[in-house]
Design a protein around this nucleic acid. Structure first.
Length: 853
RNA sequence: GGGGAUGUGAUGGAACUGGUAGACAUGCUUGGCUUAGAACCAAGUGCCGCAAGGCGUGGGGGUUCGACUCCCUCCAUCCCUACCA
C-alpha cells in the first residue's frame, strides 16, 4: 500500500493540476487583498541559486497568505533591457531581442518546474513596446513639468571599440574587450531632478515601519543631508576668488591650505602658461572617479604657487591642485583642515604642509601626528572662538563668513540628480526629437511608442542607436522640417522603477488602469540586499512622481520589505605563470596528500565562501539539482539552510538532509489513512503532551511566517514535532484516542509545510484524506488556545546565575511556594547556605535565582 | 575613504522581550541490516576532566542577581559606493 517517493512524477502531476485549474491567476476584486512581489529577474539565460532563493521566499509568503484567506497577487516578469543582451549579440551574432526571448522561454519553464504560483496573465517584458510605450509617455509628462534637464557629463570611452563603457566594463582603466586605455569624454546627457525630492524621500522613510532598519539607514546616508556653508576665498595679488563648501566651519582656524580640482577653472587657466601644471592635469584626465576607486587613489597634487587669503585671519594659504577633489562635487574646491579631516591630513603629511589642531580631542591619547581628529569638540587655538562647542562655533563663525566672505549657510545633500542617458542599443529609446530650428522637443504622444529599430548586422564593436542612420531621420513635431531622433536610451533602472504598478493594473489605453488602485501598494516586496539603495530609491522616487501625476494614491510603493542575503559557495583557483588566478569549478578539484590539486595537477588554493558568480565558476545550477532531487527539496533546503536575510552558504551534503526529510515524511504519512474520529474528552498523559506540542508548533509557525518573517525556524519546529511522535503511536495497534492526536498532527504538519513544499504536501493530503485535489481544504489550521495551557511547568533553579537544578511545579506558582522547594533541591543545597542568602529573583514559570554571599 | 551588515560546536544554524547556550540539520563515531557498498534504522557527539566540577557565543573591558542578547573598544569577513542588474 505504501509507495516510493517519486518527486518527478508527483511534481509534474501537481503542476498539471495547477495549470488546469489556473490556481494562481487573480480576477476577483475582493478583500483582504495581498500583493506579494519578488524583484523580477534579468533574463540572463537560466535561473541561478540567488533567483531560486528569492522566488521561493515570495512563493512561501504568497501561499501562506492564500491559506489565510487573502486574495493574493503574485506576478512575474522580465527586466529585459540591459548590457548582457548586447554582449551576447556581439559574441554569438544573435539579435538581442531573439536572445532575450529564448532566455525568457527557458527561464519561464524553470519557474514552472519550481512550482512558483505566478499569475502569468500579467507577465511583463520591459523590452516589449506595449510596456515601454508608457515609460516614454511618462517621461514626456516629466519633461513637460520641467523635471528633466540636459547637462554635460563624463562617460567611459573605449577608443578602439568606439563605444561607451559601463563602469564594470572598465578593468584597471582598460576596456574589457579591446584592452584599450579608457578615456573620459564629456557629452550632453539627460538628468532627472531627484534632488528636488530629497526631503520627501527622507521623510517617507519614517513611514516605512516594515522595512529593515539597515536599508532605511543606508538610504538616509545616501541622501546625506548636512548643514554647511559656502563662502569665497580671495586670491592674494589678484582680483580673482574661488568658492568652497564646508560642513565644518568650526575648524576654519585649522585651515592651512586650499585644494582645487584638476578641472577647476583656476587650474585650467594656470595650465595655459605652466607646463608642469598642464602635465599634472593631463595625468589626472582619465582618472576613474567611482567612489570605490577614489578610495584606493594615491593622493597627488601640485602647488599652484597662488595664495588664498584666509577670510578671518587674513593669513596666506597655499592653493594646491589635488586629485581627490572632484569638480562635480560641491564647488570643486575646499578649504583643507589636516588636523580634522583624514584626507587632508594624508595630503598634508605627504607634501609637508602645516597641521594645526583647533578642536580638543576627547581623550588624552589623541595625537595629530598620527591621524586627524575628526570628532566634534570644543574649539582651541581659534582666537575669540575658543571654548565654543560645535553648534555655537558653527553659528558664530558662519555669521562672520556671511558678513565678510559672501557666505551662505545652506543645507546640502549628497544625493545627485539621476543621470538617465545611456549610449546603447538595447534599451528604451528616449522620446525626444532634435530640430535645428525648434531645439529639443518631446515626441507627440500619438506617435508613441518610439520603437527600437530592427538590427540588420551586428557590429563587433559596441551597439548603439547612433549608427541607425535611417531610424534617426524624422520630422519636427513643431515645424515639420526634417529632424533627428534622440539616440540615447534610458538607464534600465527606469523600467524597474514602475513595473510594480504596471503589474497591478495593466492596460492598453493607459499607463495604469483603475484596478491598480485596488492592488497598490505592494504589501510585501522581496529582493536582494544589493538593491538596498539604487533600485529601491528610484522606485520610491517614481512612486512619488506617479502620485503627483494622479496615477496612483499611495505615497510609498512597498509597505513591507524583505532583503534577502546572497548565495555563497566555496571558490577555488590556481595561479598561472603570470601570477593571476585561474578559477576552477569544484568538480575539477580533488584532495591529494599534497593538498588540493586540479585535474591538471596544479596546486589549488581555496578562496573561501564568495558570491556565486560566472567568473569564479562556483555556481550551482538549480537545473541539475531539480533533476536530482526535485523542486520541493531545493525549496526546502534554500529556506531551511539560513535565515532569509542572511547569506546562504551552499553545501552539497546539506541538501541531502532536506531530501531525506521529505522521504521520511512521505514514508510516515503514506502508511496512514485518515479516519473521521471524534475529538476525545480525556487523553493519556503522553498523548496530551503530543497534542500540546502540535498546537504549540502551530502557534510558533503561524507567528514565524505571519509576524516575524522567519522562514528557517518553522521548518525546524515542524521537524521537531514529527520527531516527537512516540514510536508506538505509529503502529497499527494504536488506540483510537491516540490515533486522533496523530491524525491531527499529520494534517497540521502537511498544511504548515505546504507553503514550502507544495507538491509533496498536496499529494500526501490527497492520499491521507483520500480526496480529489480540488476537494482538499487548504486553509491554515485553527489554533486552539485552550490546548496551550499546562498544569505543570519546569522551573530552573540558579545559584548566582548558574543552573544548579530543575524541578516540576504546578504552573503559575508564587515565589513563596517555590523558594522553599528550591532550597530543598538536593543539588542546590550543596551550593546554598541559607544564612548567606542575600537575594532571590523569581521569574514566574521560568526560573528562580538564589543569590548568595 | 564613506555607508551597511555579519562573527555561536567539526559545519549550516537555534535561543523571538536580558532568564536553561547549542533546538533542527549536516558531518563524524559505534552498532544493526547487507556477500559488499549505497540507502535505511538505532545510539552517541561543545571543550577539559575518572568524577565532582570547571570552561565556553571573534578578542579585551563594562552594566546586571543573570549577557549570544545592552554599552565601550579592538579584530576579521562580506555587500553597496551612483553606467552590472
Amino acid at each position: 500500500m505504501t509507495s516510493e517517493y517519486n518527486p518527478k512524477e508527483i511534481e509534474a502531476s501537481i503542476q498539471e493540476y495547477w495549470n488546469q485549474t489556473n490556481t494562481s491567476s487573480v480576477s476577483k476584486i475582493d478583500t483582504p487583498k495581498y500583493y506579494c512581489l519578488s524583484m523580477f529577474p534579468y533574463p540572463s539565460g537560466k535561473l541561478h541559486m540567488g533567483h531560486v532563493r528569492n522566488y521561493t521566499i515570495g512563493d512561501v509568503i504568497s501561499r501562506f497568505k492564500t491559506m489565510n484567506g487573502f486574495n493574493v497577487l503574485q506576478p512575474m516578469g522580465w527586466d529585459a533591457f540591459g548590457l548582457p543582451a548586447e554582449n551576447a549579440a556581439i559574441e554569438n551574432n544573435v539579435a538581442p531581442n531573439i536572445w532575450t526571448e529564448k532566455n525568457i522561454s527557458h527561464m519561464k519553464q524553470q519557474f514552472k518546474k519550481l512550482g512558483f504560483g505566478y499569475d502569468w496573465s500579467r507577465e511583463i517584458n520591459t523590452s516589449n513596446p506595449d510596456y515601454y510605450k508608457w515609460e516614454q509617455w511618462f517621461f514626456i509628462q516629466l519633461f513637460n513639468k520641467g523635471l528633466v534637464y540636459r547637462k554635460e557629463s563624463e562617460v567611459n570611452w573605449d577608443p578602439v571599440d568606439e563605444t561607451v563603457l559601463a563602469n564594470e566594463q572598465v578593468i584597471d582603466g582598460k576596456g574589457w574587450r579591446s584592452g584599450a586605455i579608457v578615456q573620459k569624454r564629456k557629452i550632453d546627457q539627460y538628468f532627472l531632478k531627484i534632488t528636488d525630492y530629497c526631503e520627501d524621500l527622507l521623510e517617507g522613510l519614517n513611514t516605512l515601519t516594515d522595512w529593515p532598519s539597515q536599508v532605511k539607514l543606508m538610504q538616509e546616508n545616501w541622501i546625506g543631508k548636512s548643514n554647511g556653508i559656502s563662502f569665497d576665498f580671495n586670491i592674494s595679488d589678484s582680483n580673482k576668488k574661488f568658492r568652497v563648501f564646508t560642513t565644518r566651519p568650526d575648524t576654519i582656524f585649522g585651515a592651512t591650505y586650499c585644494a582645487i580640482a584638476a578641472e577647476h577653472p583656476i587650474s585650467l587657466s594656470l595650465a595655459e602658461n605652466n607646463s608642469e601644471i598642464a602635465a599634472f592635469i593631463e595625468s589626472q584626465k582619465n582618472l576613474d572617479k567611482t567612489a570605490a576607486s577614489m578610495a584606493k587613489l594615491e593622493k597627488k597634487g601640485i602647488d599652484t604657487g597662488l595664495k588664498a587669503i584666509h577670510p578671518i585671519t587674513k593669513e596666506l594659504l597655499p592653493i594646491w591642485i589635488a586629485n581627490f577633489i572632484l569638480m562635480d562635487y560641491g564647488e570643486g574646491a575646499v578649504m583643507c583642515v589636516p588636523a580634522h579631516d583624514q584626507r587632508d591630513w594624508e595630503f598634508a603629511t605627504k607634501y609637508d604642509l602645516d597641521i594645526r589642531q583647533v578642536i580638543a580631542g576627547s581623550s588624552e591619547d589623541t595625537d595629530i601626528t598620527l591621524s586627524a581628529i575628526e570628532e566634534k569638540g570644543n574649539l582651541i587655538n581659534s582666537n575669540t572662538f575658543d571654548g565654543l562647542n560645535f553648534e555655537q562655533a558653527f553659528n558664530r563663525i558662519s555669521k562672520v563668513l556671511v558678513a565678510e566672505a559672501n557666505g551662505n549657510v545652506e543645507v546640502n545633500y549628497k544625493l545627485r540628480d539621476w543621470g538617465i542617458s545611456r549610449q546603447r542599443y538595447w534599451g528604451c529609446p528616449i522620446p525626444i526629437i532634435h530640430c535645428d530650428k525648434c531645439g529639443i522637443l518631446p515626441v507627440n504622444e500619438k506617435d508613441l511608442p518610439i520603437q527600437l529599430p530592427e538590427i540588420e548586422n551586428i557590429s563587433t564593436r559596441g551597439l548603439n542607436l547612433n549608427s541607425f542612420e535611417e531610424w534617426k531621420k524624422t520630422t519636427c513635431p513643431n515645424c515639420s522640417n526634417s529632424a533627428q531622433r534622440e539616440t540615447d536610451t534610458f538607464d534600465t533602472f527606469f523600467e524597474s522603477s514602475w513595473y510594480f504598478a504596471r503589474f497591478a493594473g495593466p492596460s492598453d489605453s493607459a499607463m495604469l488602469s483603475e484596478e491598480s488602485k485596488y492592488w497598490l501598494p505592494v504589501d510585501q516586496y522581496i529582493g536582494g540586499i544589493e538593491h538596498a539603495i539604487l533600485h529601491l530609491l528610484y522606485a520610491r522616487f517614481f512612486n512619488k512622481l506617479m502620485k503627483e501625476q494622479g496615477l496612483i494614491e499611495n505615497s510609498e510603493p512597498f509597505t513591507k520589505l524583505l532583503t534577502q542575503g546572497m548565495v555563497l559557495a566555496d571558490a577555488y583557483y590556481y595561479l598561472n605563470e603570470d601570477g593571476n588566478p585561474v578559477w576552477l569549478n569544484k568538480s575539477n578539484v580533488s584532495e591529494s596528500e599534497k593538498g588540493l590539486i586540479s585535474v591538471e595537477g596544479k596546486k589549488v588554493i581555496k578562496d573561501g565562501m564568495s558570491k556565486m558568480s560566472k567568473s569564479k565558476l562556483n555556481g550551482v545550477d538549480p537545473e541539475d539539482l531539480m533533476e536530482r532531487y526535485g523542486a520541493d527539496t531545493i525549496r526546502l533546503y534554500t529556506m531551511f539552510a539560513a535565515p532569509a536575510d542572511q547569506s546562504l552558504e551552499w553545501s552539497d551534503t546539506s541538501i541531502e538532509g532536506s531530501a531525506r526529510f521529505i522521504k521520511r515524511l512521505w514514508n510516515l504519512v503514506d502508511s496512514m489513512r485518515f479516519q473521521n474520529l471524534q475529538e476525545p474528552i480525556e487523553l493519556e498523559k503522553i498523548a496530551k503532551e503530543l497534542r500540546y506540542k502540535t498546537h504549540k508548533t502551530l502557534q510558533k509557525v503561524t507567528n514565524d511566517l505571519g509576524e516575524r518573517g522567519s522562514y528557517n525556524t518553522p521548518i525546524a519546529a515542524t521537524m521537531e514535532l514529527i520527531n516527537a511522535i512516540p514510536e508506538d503511536f505509529k503502529s497499527k495497534e494504536i488506540i483510537e484516542n491516540n490515533k486522533f492526536v496523530v491524525q491531527e498532527l499529520i494534517s497540521y504538519v502537511l498544511r504548515m509545510l505546504h507553503p514550502f513544499i507544495p507538491h509533496v504536501t498536496l499529494e500526501l493530503l490527497k492520499r491521507f484524506e483520500n480526496k480529489k485535489l480540488v476537494d482538499i481544504d487548504l486553509s491554515w489550521p485553527q489554533l486552539r488556545k485552550d490546548l496551550l495551557i499546562l498544569d505543570e511547568v519546569e522551573i530552573v533553579i540558579q545559584v548566582n546565575g548558574k543552573v544548579r537544578g530543575k524541578m516540576l511545579c504546578s504552573s503559575d506558582s508564587e515565589q513563596q511556594h517555590i523558594e522553599p522547594l528550591a532550597l530543598q533541591h538536593e543539588n542546590v543545597a550543596k551550593f546554598v547556605d541559607p544564612e548567606n542568602l542575600v537575594k532571590v529573583i523569581y521569574i514566574k514559570n521560568k526560573l528562580i535565582n538564589l543569590v548568595v554571599k
